[in-house]
Simulated assay, not measured.
Amino acid sequence: MIVRVDSNFCTGHGRCVGFAPELFELGDEGFLDIEDQVVPDELLASVRDAVQNCPERAISLIDE
């Protein structure tokens, strides 16, 4: 699975960082700024929680 962030929708709530700090990090301006990343199997449940809890629906999981 690949995690994708649409930076046009991210408003910097940071909930994703709480669920999966290993993959998500807010940039200097307080928004997610990451490229598509392969999600390791051991983080998949945490990333799914982050996707489901993003109030702006800026994060998605894509089946490779």
Rank of each mutant, 00 (worst) to 15 (best):
E56S: 06
F9C: 09
I59M: 12
E35S: 08
L23H: 00
V17Y: 07
L23A: 01
A50R: 12
D63R: 07
A20W: 04
E35Q: 04
L61A: 07
D6E: 11
I62Y: 09
H13F: 09
L26H: 00
A50T: 12
F31T: 14
D28T: 09
S60T: 14
V39Y: 08
E22L: 01
S46C: 10
E29D: 15
N8D: 15
L61R: 13
P40E: 05
E29V: 06
D41R: 06
I62L: 13
M1S: 11
E42A: 13
I2D: 07
I34N: 00
D41W: 13
E64L: 14
V3P: 12
E56N: 12
V47F: 08
N8C: 04
P55K: 03
P21F: 03
P21Y: 03
A50Y: 07
C54S: 08
Q37R: 15
Q37I: 12
R4V: 15
D33V: 06
V17F: 02
E56F: 06
M1A: 10
V38P: 10
I59F: 05
F9N: 08
M1D: 11
D63L: 01
L43M: 10
F24C: 07
C54Y: 02
L26C: 01
S60D: 06
Q52C: 14
E29L: 08
G30F: 05
D33F: 09
E56T: 08
L43P: 05
Q37G: 13
H13T: 07
N53A: 11
P21E: 02
E56Y: 15
G12Q: 03
P55Y: 12
C54E: 10
F31K: 06
D28W: 04
L61W: 12
V47G: 08
V3G: 13
H13M: 02
V38F: 09
G14H: 00
E56M: 10
I34H: 03
V38N: 03
F9E: 04
N53R: 10
L44K: 14
R48S: 15
A20T: 14
D36C: 11
D28R: 05
S46M: 09
L61F: 01
N53S: 10
C10A: 05
C10I: 07
C10L: 00
V51N: 07
V5I: 04
E25V: 10
L32M: 03
P21N: 06
L44W: 04
I2P: 06
L23W: 01
L44S: 14
L43K: 09
V51A: 07
V38Y: 04
G14Q: 02
F19E: 11
A45F: 07
F24R: 01
A20G: 05
A58G: 07
I2G: 03
D49P: 04
V47R: 08
V38K: 11
V3N: 12
R4L: 11
F19H: 11
